[in-house]
Structures are given as C-alpha cells and as structure tokens.
C-alpha cells in the first residue's frame, strides 16, 4: 500500500503516483471550487489510471457536464468507451434528472412498477431524498458493472460534500422506515388486505423491498467510502484565497466524514519566462508564490501536485494525455523565471 509510503524527505512526492500505486483504491473523488480544473484533472487522472488498471470508469456528477467537452465526444447516462481507449469509459449523470428517470422507469414497467407512484410521493416529500436516491441508483448500477476503479468528477465544493453526506443521512432515514414497516407491516397488511395493495394498485411489501435493497447498497457503499484503502478524495485548487479557503473547509469536512484525502492538485500556476515583461503575469506569479508557500506550510502531509497554466485549452485526447503526464512527472518551470 503505497499511500502510506512516506519519503525520507520532509515533503511527500509532488505527484499522484501514490494513487496509481494503490491498487486497492476503488472510488476516487475529484473535487474543488468551480473553475479550478476539476474536469481536466479527473480526465487526466483517468487516463493515467487506465494505463495501470484493468478498467476505469469516469463519472461526472456535475450538472454542468464537461466530460463531453473535454474529450470532444458525447457521453450520456449510459457508460461509453472513450475513443482511443479500450479500458476507459465515461458517463454523465444528472443528480437532479435521474430521479425523474427512476420514476418514469418504474411507471413503464410491470411488477415493481407498482411502487412508482409511491416512490414519487416519497421523492418529493423528503427534501434531498431525490438526489440521494438517484445517487444510490447510480451506485447500484456502477457496482454491477465491475469496474476496477471509478473516478467521480464532482460538482463544485458545496455540492460534493452534500453528495458524500447523503449515504449517511439516507441510511439513517431508511433504517427508520424499515424498522417501522416491520413493526406496523402486519397491522397495515391487515387493513390493506391480504396482498397489501395500496390505493393506486401499489403494493406495500414490494415498496419496502425496494427501499430495503436501496438501503443495503447505500450502507455497503458508505462503508467503502470510509475505508481509506478503497476511497480517496483528490482536492483541486488554484493558488488564490477563496479556493484555498474552500479547500481547507473541504478537507476538514472530509475528515469529519472519515473520508481519506492525501492529494492536492494546485492548478493554473503561472511560470513567466525570465525577463518577461508581462506585468500581469509577474504580479500574479508573486501572489501565487505566496499562496504556494502557505500551502506547503499547511499541508505538509499531503502530496501537493503543481500544474502549470498552459497556453492552450486542454481538450481532446492528445492534449489531455500530455497534460496528464505532469500529474506523474513534476513539471519543471523554465529556468530563471520569477
């Protein structure tokens, strides 16, 4: 287990090599404030991981999907191979939209479909449960797909934390419901009739079964998320105050949820050439240097990866690949710069 590898030096290696080496990792979250390059980082990480793993799935949970944009290829709710790879797939899920699909699906089909109306009521009765349930549904789907590693390109910070909190919240709520139903189930069945039919042709036992299976999935995944051998969180930030502030907050909250995090990617670093007369660049470089110093001081037990700001947009397979190299081999800034 190389995540625990601590170099003899004071500083940990400034790369994501530890994630590549840690074969037991199943879930990798990439998160940070909006616009710091989460998608670029997660795509790059996915490309690097695809070289050393059997199969990798990249999931975007950001409502503003950028995977299609980054790979210049359309992705949807179903996983699809990324062009040019045999073991890297990607999919985009909409945490708000998929509850509609879930309900719709249930309405179309037979059997469990009966629970549809009830599910709908439930989904709109409890705030946040729609997102949680769609998340659980996705997790269930993903689990059955047997990918070796799954990378989540998450939505901006606030969203991420809520997302990670869901399993705990939902698990509690569902445990309550299950307990209630097992207590009052017989009584309700007595009232409702032998086959437990609810008003709109729904069936209580079936609905409870569905909820129960959801709960099981969630509790299993929840356990995995809290296992540092299986899950890690990669924080992406840029050397600016607000981004750093959010990162610090996120790291503290992750610690509260017992989710492991030991990597920070500092993106969009400027490295003006020696003698550059670009005032903005030089001023910005100075500011970034200040915050880099602060990061080094504060996160001395993290792998801090420094990524430069490129002159071109990081889009398409080739550029992503060359960008991803820098996650593993530290970028060497031009000599003589500020």
């Amino acid at each position: 287990m190389s995540a625990a590898v601590v170099n003899a030096d004071d500083e940990l290696e400034p790369t994501l090599q530890s994630i590549l080496d840690q074969k037991s990792l199943r879930w990798i979250f990439v998160g940070g404030k909006g616009g710091v390059g989460k998608t670029t980082t997660s795509c790059s990480l996915a490309i690097q991981l695809a070289r050393v793993r059997r199969s990798v799935l990249l999931i975007s949970t950001d409502p503003a999907h950028n995977l299609s944009d980054a790979f210049s290829q359309k992705f949807g709710k179903e996983e699809r191979l990324v062009e040019g790879y045999t073991n890297l797939s990607a999919m985009e899920i909409d945490p708000n939209g998929s509850i509609q699909d879930l309900i719709g699906q249930a309405d179309d089909g037979e059997g469990p479909a009966a629970a549809g109306g009830m599910m709908q009521d439930l989904a709109y009765a409890i705030p946040g449960i729609d997102e949680a349930m769609s998340f659980a549904e996705v997790l269930k789907q993903v689990k059955s797909l047997s990918y070796e590693t799954i990378i989540f390109d998450t939505a901006p910070t606030g969203h991420t934390l809520r997302f990670l909190q869901f399993p705990t919240v939902l698990e509690k709520a569902l445990a309550k419901i299950s307990a209630l139903s097992s207590q009052f189930g017989p009584m309700l069945n007595g009232i409702l009739g032998a086959n437990g039919g609810l008003p709109n042709g729904q069936s209580l036992p079936e609905m409870m079964e569905k909820l129960e299976s959801l709960r099981e999935t969630i509790s299993e995944v929840n356990g995995q998320f809290k296992d540092e051998k299986m899950t890690t969180f990669v924080c992406v930030c840029i050397p600016e105050f607000l981004s750093l502030y959010e990162t610090e907050r996120m790291i503290q909250e992750l610690a509260n949820y017992n989710i492991d995090t030991h990597c920070i990617v500092v993106n969009q670093l400027l490295f003006p050439k020696a003698g550059s007369d670009c005032d903005q660049c030089n001023a910005r470089r100075k500011m970034q240097k200040k915050y880099l110093g602060q990061i080094a001081e504060l996160y001395d037990d993290f792998n801090v990866v420094k990524m430069p700001l490129l002159v071109e947009e990081v889009r398409g397979k080739d550029r992503l690949e060359s960008f991803s190299e820098m996650l593993i081999k530290p970028y060497v800034p031009p000599v003589g710069g500020l």
Partner: peptide
C-alpha cells in the same frame, strides 16, 4: 489576516474548531 497568513490562520481555525 486570513489572506496574508493563510497557513497560520487555517491552523488557528483548526484548533478553534
């Protein structure tokens, strides 16, 4: 100042919490 000495401030903040 959280802007000028972020590391110090963040450490204080952790202790505070």
């Amino acid at each position: 100042s959280s802007q000028d000495e972020f590391a110090k401030w963040a450490k204080l903040r952790r202790q505070h919490d």
